[in-house]
Amino acid sequence: MAIRDWPQAERPREKLLSRGAGALSDAELLAIFLRTGVAGKSAVDLARELIGAFGGLRPLLDADLKRFSAAHGLGAAKYAQLQAVLELARRHLAETLQRGEGLNDPMAAERYLRARLRDLDHEVFAALFLDAQHRVLAFEVLASGTLDGAAVYPREVVKAAIRHRAAALIFAHNHPSGSVEPSAADRALTERLRQALATIDVRVLDHLVIGEGPPASFAARGWL
């Protein structure tokens, strides 16, 4: 049955408009993006099939052009549209953090840092630089490495804090393996950075380890 023949309250687009995007399933959200199905399948049917074939919504969204375009009902045009949507989401998160208001919601920083770092295939160490009112001054990648780690030098981090005139920082780095459990090396590095930044009166508010699932927070564990 075509979606236009469904009860109006159950059609994905109308459902979103009346109840909000959070009320929709992954397949329904994807169906709105796809707009149309293929012969014998509605957009929702096609969306369910694609999510199953890719092993979930995230693998579908993370697929490269070749694999994405090879799927039935997709192609280069849809891939370009999807990449544009994902980049819009990242930029929206960035602007949300940079509106000049204090960073009173820790989840806002977490969402942004996850969007920036979660899907990278190499380790990256980055920081959000904040002013005295915890307003975001800048996001900067401080080091990039291989799957085994990234070289981070306290002196360079201190120089970056001075350059941005920061009063506080939130560090974040990703674990490409997916594990969010901080290593002993992660803890030792964070302590070295905290001590180095203390010499210029810059506070480290948190260090987030990004991987699969919710990030690990050093602050939440009482390590800062």
Rank of each mutant, 00 (worst) to 15 (best):
Y153T: 05
D119P: 02
D62S: 11
L57Y: 01
E28R: 07
G55Q: 09
R91F: 14
G145D: 09
M1C: 12
D26M: 03
R163A: 10
A161C: 03
A39V: 07
W223L: 14
L34F: 15
S179L: 10
I51D: 09
A31H: 13
P106D: 04
L16G: 05
P176Y: 10
V152R: 03
T190I: 02
L189P: 10
A84V: 09
F129T: 02
G149K: 06
G149Q: 07
E140N: 13
A196Y: 06
L74N: 09
A138F: 06
R155D: 14
R221H: 15
T96C: 02
A47F: 04
Q133S: 13
V136W: 00
K15F: 04
R4Q: 13
G55N: 09
E49M: 05
L50T: 02
H173E: 10
S144V: 05
G20S: 07
P154K: 01
V44P: 04
S42Y: 15
R4H: 15
G145V: 03
A167P: 09
K41T: 08
K41H: 14
L189C: 08
A198V: 05
S183I: 06
E110T: 15
S179I: 03
R203W: 01
H164Y: 13
E101C: 02
R118L: 08
V38M: 01
R114L: 14
A53Q: 13
Q133P: 00
H72S: 11
R155N: 10
E110Q: 13
V44Y: 07
P59K: 08
G222N: 05
A138M: 05
A168T: 03
E14D: 11
V204P: 02
T96N: 10
A39M: 11
L197Y: 03
P59F: 09
L189F: 15
E49V: 01
L65G: 05
I170V: 11
P154C: 05
L120W: 12
L57C: 02
D26Q: 12
G213N: 10
A115Y: 03
V124I: 08
R99C: 10
G37I: 13
I162Q: 13
